[in-house]
Design a protein around this nucleic acid. Structure first.
Lengths: 173, 173
DNA sequence: CATTGCTTTCAGAAATTACTGAAACTTCAG
DNA sequence: CTGAAGTTTCAGTAATTTCTGAAAGCAATG
């Protein structure tokens, strides 16, 4: 193995390890983040066994997290003709990755919050004391804000990269 | 206790419990989210003992999470004249809460990612093979995007509520 | 319909994270 | 200085999350 190939392997391993550590901070499990990093920097699709070997993890773990990444829309399953194995390929376009993550987080984090806030607002609607009114108002304000966030998330997720940049330029200028 | 007071307590308990559960999904610990919910809906500042009693948690747990919330800028410490106890009061303005959370998440999630990406880009800068170039390019694209996110976070965190609404209207219109 | 090659599931083990309760520390008043 | 009232720390325990390895499932092939 040549010196440059070795240097690449090293840089890539570093990236995988660090991305995994970051994932933990973002509330994503380490293995999932590592697999994502590995595949985002893979020149071609990898199979379950290759992922297992590269990251030194069990089949069950590799399988679960690969499927989870597919559910997030961050990996595609690739089947090669004449082969039974499944290969996995990462979305490499950074903007598309961002869109996927935004959609998924909205679904998992924003939508449930909205449910809760609406329920609490409704339940406190008719409580006719100063404290009751204050509580209701607080719920309403949270609800309004989260609704706003929800709309923004949808908007952003629908944008084309170019448009987003244009908007950002306006915002920043 | 009157019926309406009772209904309020019930609604509030529900909110605290659910907000705690949501917190878990956001990668924030349950107790911290519960304390935050409790104080956001408290008509006046509470002391450690009241928080302990309300949520049925230990002193150590209450203390740690109260201080953590202060560190996030989501609670203020209030001292009443002639008293030694510390009381805690939540920021109730939803927009201000959002700003604080944005700042803190940028610091904890975006900045470290940028460090990692810069290091990996630098390390792979001179690897002169097709795979090396591809890796370097991927790091650069990620870096560029995260830089963009960082700038946006700073911008948003510097906005006044009114301005944000105005911008949102433009975006959505 | 038996075998092969691969995918999926899941019970138990390991690792991580959060909580308790008690002791140590700090500050103030008498 | 001593005690009272409160804050802070932390070792050990509990709860939760993640991972392993093996068994079960499934589809294609001969």
């Amino acid at each position: 193995m040549s010196a440059t190939t070795d240097a690449l392997k090293q840089a890539r391993d570093e990236f995988v390890a660090q991305w995994g550590a970051l994932g933990t901070q973002w509330g994503i499990n380490r293995t999932m983040a590592q697999i994502h990093a590995l595949l985002m920097t893979a020149p071609e699709p990898l199979g379950t066994d290759e992922v297992m070997e590269e990251l030194e993890i069990s089949r069950g773990n590799a399988h679960t997290n690969l499927k989870e990444l597919v559910a997030w829309g961050l990996l595609r399953v690739v089947v090669r003709k004449g082969e039974r194995r499944e290969y996995f390929e990462a979305e490499k376009d950074v903007w598309k990755v961002f869109i996927m993550v935004t959609r998924e987080r909205k679904r998992r984090e924003i939508d449930p919050a909205l449910q809760v806030l609406r329920k609490c607002a409704e339940e406190s609607q008719d409580i006719d004391t100063p404290e009751g009114r204050a509580f209701y108002e607080q719920m309403r304000q949270l609800e309004e804000f989260v609704e706003f966030a929800s709309t923004m998330a949808d908007r952003v997720a629908g944008m084309k990269h170019g448009f987003a940049l244009q908007m950002a330029a306006k915002m920043l200028g």
